[in-house]
């Protein structure tokens, strides 16, 4: 059962999502995202699909299952999903309550997702369940900052941001550890706010 409050928030954002993120942010991050997604291999879970903006950065010929909590986002994403030159499906699903079997995927990729998952540790624990032991979690996420003055600014603005969309001051690396992953590599993309995180699901 999907979290209806979160679903409604992202349904409402779907209409303007490409307008806000489809040009400037995508153009700025495209090369980094292509580099990030180039390591895709095996059976892959991708969340959250959103309107499918990231699909253009996926390497061709992969086996990808995408999920998203918002039907309106998925509706916009479907043309991009259908045009992906590989095997890709997209399903309506809440990361807190996934119906995949245990150990179903070799890799999980996320892209600006765990700023918005209401219970990030529970969501990440769900990803660990569906990842094979030794499988990799690769995240492109924005987090809080440890650098003054951005640390204070992000904390101050977060109550407003979380009402409209994502949280902007989460410690996602700590959340990944708290969910039982072994964090392997963290790379700063912009300041210490936007980053790549790589982690491994340990053997049970």
């Amino acid at each position: 059962m999907a979290d209806s409050k979160t679903q409604a928030k992202w349904d409402a954002a779907a209409a303007s999502f490409d307008l806000m993120g489809g040009f400037g942010p995508e153009k700025r991050w495209k090369a980094r995202k292509e580099e990030f997604f180039s390591s895709m291999g095996g059976k892959i879970l991708f969340l959250a699909v959103g309107t499918g903006l990231d699909i253009q950065c996926f390497p061709a010929g992969k086996d990808i299952t995408g999920i998203d909590i918002s039907p309106k986002m998925l509706e916009k994403a479907m043309p991009r999903v259908e045009h992906y030159p590989g095997q890709m499906t997209a399903r309506l699903m809440d990361v807190h309550d996934m119906d995949f079997e245990d150990n179903a995927f070799d890799q999980v990729f996320t892209s600006c997702t765990f700023c918005s998952v209401p219970d990030p540790v529970k969501g990440l624990a769900g990803l660990r369940r569906v990842l094979k032991p030794g499988g990799t979690l690769k995240m492109f996420e924005h987090t809080g900052s440890t650098c003054f003055p951005f640390s204070v600014m992000l904390d101050l603005v977060n109550p407003l941001c979380r009402h409209l969309g994502p949280d902007i001051n989460r410690d996602t690396v700590a959340n990944v550890r708290a969910a039982g992953f072994e964090v392997g590599k963290v790379t700063n993309v912009y300041l210490d706010v936007v980053k790549f995180i790589e982690a491994v699901a340990p053997a049970a």
Binding site: G21, G24, R28, F150, M153
Partner: peptide, 25 residues
């Protein structure tokens, strides 16, 4: 914040929003 939000669709997300928010403050 509003400045960062308005320029973001054209030039990037955090790379625009954070410097703009700092500039305003």
């Amino acid at each position: 914040m509003i400045g960062g939000f308005l320029f973001s669709p054209f030039f990037g997300a955090f790379e625009v929003m954070l410097p703009a928010a700092l500039s305003g403050m």
